[in-house]
Structures are given as C-alpha cells and as structure tokens.
Amino acid sequence: MKGMTLIVKKTTQLIAGMIFMYGIYIIVHGHLTPGGGFAGGVIIAGSLILVTLAYGGDFLKLVKEEAGTTIVESISILMVIMIATAGFLFGIHIFFSNFLPKGVVGQLISAGVLPLYNIFVGTEVAASIFIIFLSLIIFKEESPQ
C-alpha cells in the first residue's frame, strides 16, 4: 500500500501522537469524565488508521502488524472475562462484583475495578477496529487483479 504526499505525512507526524494521547486520557479518566472504554478505544484506533493511511507500508509489515494486533485483542477480552471471574472468587461471590476498595469518589484511583475494565475494553475495541481496517487492506492486495 502506497503512502500519501509529504504534506499529509508532516501533518500526521504533528497530530497523530496527540490523538493517541487523547484516547488514552479518555480511557483512563473513564470513571470521572464522559467517555470510557468504547469511546477511547475508537479514538486510539482512529489515530492508528491515520498513521497507516498516511505512511502506507509494505505487504509483509502489514501482515505482521495484523498478527500482533490479533494477539492483543484476544488477550484483552480474556482479561475482561478474568477480572469478572475474579469477582466470583474474592469478596462477595458474585460474577462482576466490585471487589477492590472503592476509595474517594472523584479521584483518579478510585471506583475499584471499573478503571481496569475501562482499560481492557478500550484496548480490545482499538485492536478490533484496527484489525478490520488492516484486513480490508491485506485481503485487497492478496486478491488477483
């Protein structure tokens, strides 16, 4: 896949990192401000798609990237289910129970396991949307012209 012109590349260099950081901010502050795992994950996927569209990359590199992203996605959905199962083992024995201490409402480290759910769901959503995008590119280049 070919990249784009120099202007697009320079602009991407300037703003892609900021978009990525904004996505991380939305995920980490998901239990304090509007947003959360789904919104932040989609923003992170958007920044990755922006970099891929602007810079392109040869076929083998994209295939490698897709394999790595698949592993990240599977691990994060597994972690979500394992945290939910951990609620079954510790504290009151309920699936999805909030077994960590809740802390002070409004602080960054509070709300028990909710930030952990946010982080892992965010990673999973980002990886999923990026995989769909990458696979569309890869399968198009694989297909006979």
Binding site: G30, H31, L32, T33, P34, G35, G36, F38, E73, S74, I77, V80, I81, A84, F95, F96, N98, K102, G103, V105, G106, S110, A111, G112, L114, Y117, N118, V121, E124, V125, S128, I132
Partner: peptide, 29 residues
C-alpha cells in the same frame, strides 16, 4: 459504585453482563 461518571458506573457495574456481551460481539465480528 465509587464512580463519578454515572454512565460508566451503570455500564460496567449494574449492567456488566451487557458490556461483556458487547465486547464479545465485537470479537466475533
């Protein structure tokens, strides 16, 4: 829930099963 954002509190605590279903649906897609 200990969460200042009520939406996250509902999505991940009261309605945890729904959120897990959504995430699994995304993986299946």
């Amino acid at each position: 829930t200990g969460s200042a954002n009520l939406v996250t509190g509902v999505v991940f605590d009261f309605r945890g099963y729904d959120t897990m279903g959504e995430a699994v649906v995304l993986v299946t897609a």
